[in-house]
Write a protein that binds this DNA or RNA. Structure first.
Lengths: 180, 180
DNA sequence: TGGCTCATGTAAGCCGTTACATGATTTT
DNA sequence: AAAATCATGTAACGGCTTACATGAGCCA
């Protein structure tokens, strides 16, 4: 983020919130200590940059920081991928629910998708996002939009199936609540 | 997992590995202490169930455990969704890479998708997965297959774009490594 | 006999969040 | 005058992984 024009810890956080947050988040409790750690490692330089009476610290990458960043970026091995999806987990155990209960979960996730897609489109239309002419952040954003739209479609189809089943119920279609 | 027929901590772990692992994993270091905690809370019952000379503990849900499970499953509020995707993160910062470096990341993720889809299909074809006639685990699996196939298609398209750009390079298409 | 699977567990540590604390500057 | 934003930081805690330790039973 420093390389993309951020200067302070606060600034980094704001940028994350409108960009990588969806697939790589960070909190102040992580950012500020990490900046100090990077400084100790000689990868960033801190400069006092008071704003009026408020002390403020502006950071920038050192030569060593640039190299370390590039080395990491250019390494295609062991690209971490992690996911925790509670809606999917509840679908996995869906046989223990009635159709109505399952539908509530499916609908909730579909509505969440609507909100997220809306948010992403808003971000996409922000006149200035702070990366200048760079293309790659926009591509990542579009990946996000398309992914959530895919998810939304999946959940919407599921919603329709469950509603259809509710209108013409069949044996075993609705189960008793979680008792054996 | 206990409700779906698992009995021991070990068994739970095996089931997770062929099912929820992709969107909700767990390690032994989490499972065994958690089983003890649930026992203290009265949500599961432990029974000594030695296998030959090996001591083994079989667990099952109590009435209170059944209720707690159902209560959690039927609650559609605050469905957690989290993701960490390092490939996407590197694409986000892709403007700092040459096309060749970026391509290596894209290809690596696409190949990872191939492997995961392959694994999921193998799981899908396992004669017995241990849930009897339950439908919901299979649906979650198919969600996973379709999601990864979507991802794969996205990365493949990106791969083709980068290769095409390499064959007829244009100004600005390839940048110098991470120096300002 | 050796290797794999079944089986249980703990300790150390990492990564990260939440909540709290503080206060100036800018906007309404 | 109040509210929002800019700005920095810490402490406590939660959740989870990795590595380690142990050992019996089963199969080739």
């Amino acid at each position: 983020m420093l390389r993309f024009g951020s200067r302070t810890g606060y600034d980094i956080k704001q940028k994350i919130e409108i960009s990588t947050r969806f697939f790589w988040g960070a909190s102040y409790g992580q950012i500020y200590p990490e900046l100090k750690r990077l400084e100790r490692m000689g990868l960033v330089e801190a400069e006092a940059d008071p704003r009026g009476g408020v002390k403020r610290t502006a950071y920038k990458l050192t030569e060593a920081g640039e190299s370390a960043l590039h080395e990491w970026l250019a390494d295609p091995s062991d690209l971490l991928f992690e996911m925790r999806d509670e809606a999917l987990l509840k679908i996995f155990f869906g046989d223990l629910l009635t159709d109505a209960e399952l539908l509530a979960n499916v609908r909730a996730r579909r509505e969440w998708c609507d909100q997220v897609v809306g948010l992403f489109h808003q971000i996409d239309e922000l006149p200035v996002r702070g990366w200048g002419k760079r293309e790659s952040p926009t591509e990542a954003l579009h990946y996000g939009i398309e992914l959530i739209e895919w998810m939304r479609a999946w959940y919407e189809r599921k919603e329709r199936e469950l509603k259809a089943r509710a209108r013409r119920p069949h044996p075993g279609g609705t189960r008793a609540p979680g008792r054996r």
